[in-house]
Design a protein around this nucleic acid. Sequence first.
DNA 1: TTTTATCTTAGAGTAATTAAAACTTATCAT
DNA 2: ATGATAAGTTTTAATTACTCTAAGATAAAA
Lengths: 134, 134
Amino acid sequence: MDTEIVEMLRGKGLKVTPQRLAVMKLLSRGGHFNGEQIYEELKKNEPSISLSTVYNALEALENAGIVNSFEANGITWYEMATKAHINVFCLDTKEIIDVSANLQDIENQLMEKGFDVKNVSVVAYASCNKVSNK
Amino acid sequence: MDTEIVEMLRGKGLKVTPQRLAVMKLLSRGGHFNGEQIYEELKKNEPSISLSTVYNALEALENAGIVNSFEANGITWYEMATKAHINVFCLDTKEIIDVSANLQDIENQLMEKGFDVKNVSVVAYASCNKVSNK
DNA sequence: TTTTATCTTAGAGTAATTAAAACTTATCAT
DNA sequence: ATGATAAGTTTTAATTACTCTAAGATAAAA
């Protein structure tokens, strides 16, 4: 239901717009999307949406702590802000795979050093070894 | 002395060019540089160098495992490939600060899952709390 | 010292993102 | 419900950070 998302946005003091709802619904499906992918996907239902709006919405959602972003392969990727994990960029398939890991020590170490940590991004570049590379 | 660098490049099967030497000497000073910064710095001594050459040299050096790169704040940063560490992007000063940390578990976990890991990038976005933000 | 594969250069080209300006809308207080 | 207003959206243009190409130059092997 949309109600949850609506309340989530309201709770963070964000205006609830159809565009933001659509971004949230897409990201809620799970996985990783870049700006262009989100734009292309949302255009299917709402052809008038613009790429700027997508980026604006993502920025607002990220600032509110609902969405998380990281950079890999020269692109910014967005995902729902859930539990911290490793994002593995597969050099064979160019897919991003979530790998769970305990990253709490990292954040703790930084806090101990006096940093006020907003986001920790762990990106690994690797071959998944499941593809035949001739 | 340049001899060390020359031998390092030769050992990796790379041609030794004045441009690559210059990139290596700059990165050897320590710290993090982006393509434009390296270009601007090298131009001081060799005005004919081009930005493409900088990126080409960095790519060759990275492929050889001599140089490491990571992305932060929409920019690719280059550093000498030394011990794995956390790169903290300070949201106040926009500087990148190295923070040592044990990242071996991360790489091990990925290896156990069958990944052939080429590079692990840990980037934290944080305030250093040493700057007065009015 | 000639050969040749590789590198460098200059400049054009591209992809991803950001900015500006004008218009539209979600929310709140009537 | 209504109207004000702050915030969000759209379109278009601009910017940033690379990336590519083609032609000339050069490091290193023979």
